[in-house]
């Protein structure tokens, strides 16, 4: 057991956790950040995806003890961070997912939306092929991915539209 100092969604939090606990377990069961989901136990499904220094990683394979120092963003962080940045309402990715019907059961989507958010941070207007590749580590069982890809394209289109206007 050690006391970890983690940077989560802009906060510094101290949390005591045994070394064999994953970041996912600490997020969910120590910090109450249950938005990160567990679907497969071992890195096969992507539901536990969080952003580590802006890049998607799997919190079920990442030890909490090795997560100190990095900026960790979970799904709970997107809306507040968007507000902090001067936006209104949810992050445009979250909003687009909702408007496109991409949230059926919603269980895989926190991870999916974070993968999409990372892609959009990295690339201004990714192609459909790039979207598919960026989301190819997040399994969804409800949507057939169609409305998910539409949602990411909508978020991109609106960003491009906003820039141009």
């Amino acid at each position: 057991m050690r006391v970890l100092e983690l940077k989560i969604n802009g906060d510094r939090v101290e949390v005591a956790a045994p070394d064999h606990w994953t970041l996912l377990e600490v997020l969910r069961y120590r910090l109450g950040l249950t938005g990160s989901k567990q679907g497969c136990d071992k890195g096969d499904c992507g539901a536990c995806t969080v952003l580590v220094d802006g890049k998607p990683e799997l919190s079920c394979l990442k030890l909490a003890a090795l997560s100190e120092g990095a900026e960790i963003t979970t799904i709970e962080g997107l809306l507040p961070l968007h507000l902090q940045a001067g936006g209104t309402g949810p992050d445009p990715v979250q909003d687009a997912f909702d408007r496109c019907g991409a949230l059926q059961c919603g269980f895989c989507q926190p991870g999916m939306m974070l993968s999409a958010r990372a892609l959009l941070n990295e690339c201004h207007s990714p192609s459909q092929a790039e979207i598919k590749k960026a989301l190819s580590g997040n399994l969804c069982r409800c949507t057939g991915y169609t409305q998910i890809i539409e949602a990411v394209e909508l978020a991109i289109a609106e960003r491009v539209g906003a820039k141009n206007s």
Binding site: L78, P90, Q94, D98, L103
Partner: peptide
Amino acid sequence: RKVDGLAKATGQA
């Protein structure tokens, strides 16, 4: 929109 869409989108669900 679905009635629970944004709750799911924001991790609150």
